[in-house]
Simulated scan of single mutants.
Amino acid sequence: MADLILHHYTTSPFSEKVRTILGAKKLPWKSVFIPPIMPKPDVEVLTGGYRKTPFLQIGADMYCDSALIADVLEHLQPEPTLYPEPEKGMSRILAQWADTTLFWAAMAWNLQPKGAAEVFAKAPPEAAKAFGEDRGKMSAGNMTRLRPADATSAYKSYLRRLSDMLDDKPFLLGEAPCIADFSAYHPLWYTRRIESVKGILELTPAVVDWMDRIAAIGHGSSSKFSSDEAIAVAKAAAPHTLLTDSTFQDDHGIPLGSAVTIRAESFGLEETPGTLVAATRTHYTLERSSERTGTVHVHFPRIGYVLRKAEA
């Protein structure tokens, strides 16, 4: 099997989700640290424009979005499963809620003024400004952001609901962690990192105990890797997808082989252009080529992403 190369940075919540899944699956991986804000030239040359964190590289295949990465890791190592029967559908729906609704409530709480001041306390003043401007460009006015007071109410309610789910079992849907646990964990993990705001977790001791159980899983075995090395791996390889579904599902009237763009629906609106080589019930794949990378395939989940025919 080709090396798993995770492009991430230490404080990225969605990276923590994937790192913990790698730990649960006991899969070794290579760690490429990328900048938290733009510019990200080495990221863009591999993905073609997608700049959210993390993405997973396997040879000349780039898998974008933690939801799709989880599917790839499940294929590589089916046990322990992320999608247990008979709760497979429930686990995915709960994970989607956690990655969106819960995440944005948590982050509005986490980065309220006192939280943001702590996060950037050791950084120069321009770092906080640059981070805010970068994240503003990613949403480009397309999102409704919760104010801290509203986020407080929502976050407390969501924590209580998670606590209710843990009344009689160690994990959200049973005796073992699933995709729902890893998705609900990462925004709370970020809260726990910030002394001035982490007290909200103490209102739900069952959630804190559950977080301890997830944290104990760890990140598995990783080794440092550079962006240049990752780009060299891509150029030396040929695309070979690990996504198992291949039947073309045409919901857009766009045939395979068309020049298209793909972007996220609401956050991270940068477009990735390329040639559409797969559009299945679960994912899209674009083919791209450059001098530095050779031919690569960039994969996106279908849910949460917008496919358009490229303008002539």
Rank of each mutant, 00 (worst) to 15 (best):
E85K: 10
S223M: 03
E87I: 05
Y185S: 11
A127M: 14
P273N: 06
A117T: 02
K30W: 08
P239L: 02
K25E: 12
A184E: 02
V296Q: 00
P301T: 09
P125N: 09
T100L: 07
K224H: 13
D228C: 10
K25D: 11
A140I: 03
P41S: 03
A236F: 01
K309T: 01
D251P: 03
S66Q: 10
A149E: 10
F55G: 04
T241I: 02
L201G: 06
I214G: 02
Y190F: 14
R147C: 08
F120E: 06
A60M: 03
F103K: 02
S290L: 00
P35S: 11
D164E: 11
A60D: 03
K17S: 06
F55Y: 12
L6S: 08
L256F: 11
V207A: 07
R145I: 14
K198E: 10
P273I: 04
A2Q: 15
G115P: 09
K122Q: 14
V43E: 12
D134S: 12
T53L: 11
A123L: 14
P80L: 06
L172A: 08
Q249Y: 07
T144H: 14
A236S: 12
H186I: 03
A149I: 11
K309N: 07
N142R: 15
F300C: 03
A116P: 01
F120I: 00
A216G: 04
M62I: 13
M165H: 13
L269T: 00
A70P: 04
H297E: 01
I37H: 03
R51S: 11
K122F: 15
A206D: 09
S12Q: 10
A259N: 14
E133I: 12
V72I: 12
W210S: 06
E229I: 01
Y83D: 08
I69L: 05
T152P: 10
V119R: 04
G89T: 08
K156C: 08
R161E: 07
T293P: 01
Q249G: 00
Y190Q: 15
